[in-house]
Design a binder for these strands. Sequence first.
DNA 1: ATGTCAATATTGACAGTGTCAAGTTTGCGG
DNA 2: CCGCAAACTTGACACTGTCAATATTGACAT
Lengths: 198, 198
Amino acid sequence: MSQTPPKPHHHGDLRAALIRAGIDILQTDGFHGLSLRKCAARAGVSHAAPAHHFDGLAGLKGAIAHHGLTLFREAMVAASKDETDDLARLKGICRGYLNFVAARPALFRLMFGFESHEIEKAAREIDDAVAYDVLRAACAPFVRKDLPAPILEAQVWSLIHGYATLYLTGNFLRDVHALPEQEAFDQVMAALDRMVSL
Amino acid sequence: MSQTPPKPHHHGDLRAALIRAGIDILQTDGFHGLSLRKCAARAGVSHAAPAHHFDGLAGLKGAIAHHGLTLFREAMVAASKDETDDLARLKGICRGYLNFVAARPALFRLMFGFESHEIEKAAREIDDAVAYDVLRAACAPFVRKDLPAPILEAQVWSLIHGYATLYLTGNFLRDVHALPEQEAFDQVMAALDRMVSL
DNA sequence: ATGTCAATATTGACAGTGTCAAGTTTGCGG
DNA sequence: CCGCAAACTTGACACTGTCAATATTGACAT
């Protein structure tokens, strides 16, 4: 895509404005509300203008996801940075994960929903690392010879990702979601105690 | 919706035909390929005919998800029924879960993607139980006083659901997915050993 | 058999959507 | 000042879901 717009001509910086518009629309109108034409309208340009900055809708979604990943990382960092204990820190990461899901459901859906398959794949692999590193660091203290880092990370990531998505969609887990939110989270995340114990 | 179509007039049983068409289209053209008009065309009726059997697209998706849930259940039962050991049986359920995801990705996405939010909600809560009961039964042997059934179920469901969706979308977990599929599955599901152990 | 009537399906229209092919404006570099 | 390319607009196309109006069908009562 056009990663170097050196000097904006008409708008100012349309590319950034469209991404901002997209994130706003996701928050306001939900995932369905996002469309190229609405982003264009909100940015005050014509309906086909975005085509010059993104490779169609998939390209715009890719750019939004790219930006969203830094917000995602920030949420996890913020929720874990005050923890000193290794386990509490890991749970803080998960707490941040869930906070992000609750705060920006549509953006999360764009980033991690099945749609991510159709998103511009190029930069994705690099971007993912931005968020994944946070988890990796939090998992590091628990790595053992019989529990390699990639496996542990996959286990933890699967657990929190699964819980977050089931939480978001309301599928299954009704008994648990009937509990107060924090208690439900704590009880499910208690699985980490065992997964990580000697 | 029309839950009692006592005597078909024109088509034969258009409702069932549309659901079948929908599942076929999901398998052939992927999630995006599904549309009311295409289902109608494949069933040999006009584009607006489905409206008389389903409450719009959400209604059709709901009906497809309803049917898909029984296939989903069958996949889990089939993969676990020959196991006698309790833990192996639980892992068989998870194996069946992943098998289903691999075999019918678009249908799975319709059922458990974020789209399920917009799906006809009415029957969903009852339907869910159809599949959830399989998991519940497999979890039952491991329930203890300090590990109530709903919590354990939520932990197991979150783990396999998270792994399956990350597997499907290709987000994160690259190191693990570089492994042979069965080995990756086994290693991640080893977390169950610990979660369930005394 | 005949007429009634509701369920079933068709047709045509409408507002959206993404995307493409042209044209138009803008402003920088020679 | 002029060219020229980047940025943007305009108009069209095919496709989508949805609705209102119409036509058809088949069962049931008389």
